[in-house]
């Protein structure tokens, strides 16, 4: 320890430059990785919120379609939805995979590239009528067709 405290030897200037440059590059790399991680996390959160909004729009349209279906006919609603969310398309489907553990079907929206999934409840409408179908957002429209026995979502 005494040798260390009294050691006044330094590094040569070029060696010092190389050392500091290397350390700086490591720092820069770490900062870049951290920044990308933060931006990616924020991006995924924003995608989730937007998927949830879109899912609520579709779920409300399903509910309204059920309530307005004539007793002797069919009802058809073409719903405008965003074609892309955060620059990537998404997939909409009716799923039995209920994360809320209530035992009802849910509307499942999956972002194609970012692997973000949002689940929106159907509020037990599936207990009143059969609900099926799936669609992608590529066309910007989703078709909801309902009759007295079932509701189907498909590509618009």
């Amino acid at each position: 320890m005494r040798v260390l405290l009294n050691d006044e030897d330094g590094q040569a200037i070029p060696v010092e430059y190389i050392l500091i440059f290397t350390i700086s590059m490591i720092f820069l790399g770490l900062m870049t990785l951290t920044f990308n991680s933060v931006v990616d996390s924020s991006s995924r959160q924003a995608i989730y919120i937007e998927l949830t909004d879109t899912g609520n729009l579709i779920s409300s349209a399903i509910t309204n379609s059920y309530l307005t279906t004539p007793v002797d006919g069919a009802n058809s609603i073409s719903l405008d939805v965003p074609a892309e969310i955060a620059g990537t398309g998404y997939f909409v489907e009716i799923s039995d995979d209920d994360p809320f553990e209530v035992g009802n079907k849910v509307l499942k929206l999956t972002s194609m590239q970012k692997s973000v999934t949002a689940y929106v409840p159907l509020n037990s409408v599936d207990a009143l009528i059969e609900i099926n179908g799936s669609a992608s957002s590529v066309s910007g429209k989703i078709l909801i067709v309902s009759n007295t026995s079932e509701i189907t979502i498909s590509q618009g």
Partner: peptide, 8 residues
């Protein structure tokens, strides 16, 4: 809650 559609 389930039957009214309030879920979680």
């Amino acid at each position: 809650s389930r039957a009214m559609g309030f879920d979680r």
